[in-house]
Design a protein around this nucleic acid. Structure first.
Lengths: 253, 253
DNA sequence: CGAAATTTTGAGTTCACTCAAGGATGGTGG
DNA sequence: CCACCATCCTTGAGTGAACTCAAAATTTCG
């Protein structure tokens, strides 16, 4: 059930078998959400974790325009923030049929108390989401359409790769061009024309829901993409995260 | 030293005297950073907290363009994420002369172990930053220049108010129009023209570094601003944050 | 097979950008 | 205390990237 999550977490040390087991046990049940449906209502006292499919955070503006603020691939928590915040500023919706693992807040709280490393993994996950958001701000604020879309595709490539969903440079991406537009702050029409150029340039192919990155280097250059912000590689030299985690292991509560 | 922080934290329950004291004690020293200078280098093994002045997170694009991804007002932590993440994707710079409280990571780690409620307050703070980022994405991605700037000013108004830095609808805002542009994804020229319109419309006055909100209602309407995402009001009905905190008090580690 | 959703094309428009230069402001040193 | 320099604000003019509206072509799916 949580393999994708665990697989991703391996990248920075991972969890012990015991911790994994505890997390697995915390899953109360699973749920299927149809494409286009909101997850709302569910997340009163539960966290939702994507097991299969693609979901997104979005905000609706008064005039009906939509802005997608993040995508959730398998292994991602959707709404960890509701564990600590009372006000939700966005909605979460399924872009494809999505299988969700539902973890009650109280169980996650138990885990956090008994397994500090799990608490840290959760916090860390929310911090990476924040880094993704920052990158998105720079993307939308300062790049043109071509670069924005290139950047988005690069990010998805790495994120999907980190959960084992890329094969030979290709991955399933069941997004409509409207979705791409809502995620990059562009109109559908412009997304369409830009994607045509991107395909013509030989950077990608996009057939059905199958996207293939034909020239990752040039795509990354076009999107000014550097994967570091995703924190998907272990970099033992910097930061105190490992130290913090180690402490919590040495002195378990 | 940390009054602004504590003042802001009061809004959702605050910290005990003991906890406040412990946080105060964790401050190793303070530092003055000149306007325009980066805080970088400092934050290898320290967290920086703004005591006075205005700082910002920013990212520099290859061609030299800048995108400001967040502002830090007094009482804000600048780089809590570095406690857990190894890769830093942005820089932090002082927009005005800034007084910084430096808190070594290891001391913050001690605190987190001994005072779970402090750990939660820190996590919560990073979650609110994430909410601010999301709102910023929607702002830049889907709103026009007028609304973007209005929204930014509304946000700053509330954030500064939450740390007691607004008086009679007026606050110090030592941002240049270039800064506003970098924060909203606009060019200086366009910021200038938009601000002129905003002043002519009677929404604000901006003299020197003093901004006065003349008509908050209309400004908020123009920016489609709703303050909930800032989580600055206690809303006991929703969420599990309080429960989590309570637990950690009932069963201290 | 037909309806609905999605992609694509065309044409005209606009919001925001760039370039360039002229004022204003404020800090600093002689 | 004033002159000077740097930064910032402001204005004008021309341009362009992305938008809107509208409709046709294509794909998807029940």
């Amino acid at each position: 059930m949580l393999q994708r999550l665990f697989f991703r977490l391996e990248r920075f040390g991972g969890l012990s078998e015991q911790e994994k087991h505890a997390l697995q046990e915390a899953v109360a049940r699973t749920r299927l959400v149809n494409a286009g449906e909101d997850l709302s209502g569910v997340h009163e006292y539960h966290c939702n974790l994507v097991v299969e499919g693609l979901a997104c955070d979005y905000m609706l503006l008064p005039d009906g325009r939509r802005q997608i603020t993040n995508l959730h691939v398998p292994g991602d928590f959707c709404d960890l923030d509701l564990l600590l915040l009372s006000a939700s500023d966005r909605s979460i919706s399924a872009l494809t049929p999505v299988k969700i693992a539902i973890i009650p807040h109280h169980k996650l709280l138990d885990l956090a108390e008994r397994h500090p490393r799990i608490l840290l993994a959760l916090w860390r996950d929310t911090l990476i989401d924040a880094a993704i958001s920052r990158e998105c701000i720079a993307n939308i604020g300062r790049r043109n359409a071509f670069a924005r879309i290139a950047h988005l595709l690069c990010e998805l490539y790495i994120r999907l790769q980190s959960v084992g969903l890329v094969r030979d440079g290709a991955f399933e991406l069941p997004l409509t061009q409207t979705d791409i537009g809502d995620a990059t702050g562009l109109s559908v029409v412009h997304v369409n024309r830009t994607l045509q150029r991107m395909r013509a340039d030989g950077l990608i192919t996009w057939v059905g829901h199958q996207v293939t990155v034909r020239d990752q280097k040039r795509l990354e250059a076009a999107g000014e993409f550097r994967a570091t912000y995703l924190n998907l590689r272990v970099d033992p030299g910097h930061g105190s995260g490992d130290r913090l985690a180690r402490r919590f292991v040495v002195y378990p509560t």
